[in-house]
Amino acid sequence: MKSVELSCKVNGRPVSLPVEPDTMLVDFLRGHLGLTGTKTGCREGECGTCTVLLDGMPVNSCILPALKAAGREITTIEGLARPDGSLDDIQEAFMDAGAIQCGYCSPGMMLTAKSLLEKNPNPSEDEIKHALSGVLCRCTGYRKIVQAVRDASCRK
C-alpha cells in the first residue's frame, strides 16, 4: 500500500508524516505521534472513548480516516493543558470533583467538555448532559462529571 503525506496541526504544532491511507486518526495519533492519551473502547464509534477535537469539534477518532484531518487542527488530551504547562480548568475541575475513576473515558469526556464550554460558557445541566452523552463511562455514574463541567464553567 502506498503511503500518503498527511499534514495537519496537532495540539498547536504542525505535523507532516507519511501514513498508509487506511490509517484511522486514532492510530495516527497513538502510533505515529505517540499520543497514547487517546483511548479506544469499541472501534466503531459507539463509546466516545477515542474522542478528539477536530477544528474544535468532538469527533470519534476510531472511525475517522486520518486523511480526513489533512489541513485541519486536532486537539488531544495531551494538548488540553495551557501552553505554560498549567492544567486547564476542566482538568482541575475533574480532579477536584472526583470525576475520574479508572480514567479510560476521561480524555474523551474532558475534550468534549472543553468543546462545549468554548461554545457555551455557561451551560445548563441539561446542556451538559446532552453535550457529553456521546461518551460512555462505566465507573462514575456521571454525576461527578456533570458537577465537574459545571464547576469548570464557573472558574472561567
Binding site: T36, G37, T76, E78, L80, F94, M95, I100
Partner: peptide
C-alpha cells in the same frame, strides 16, 4: 479527607499508561 486521587494528574493529562499504550 477527600484528598485528590494519587493518580489523578496522570489520568487527567493522558499520561497514565494503560496496557494498549
Amino acid at each position: 479527607d477527600s484528598v485528590r486521587r494519587t493518580d489523578d494528574v496522570l489520568k487527567a493529562t493522558g499520561k497514565l499508561k494503560y496496557a494498549a499504550d
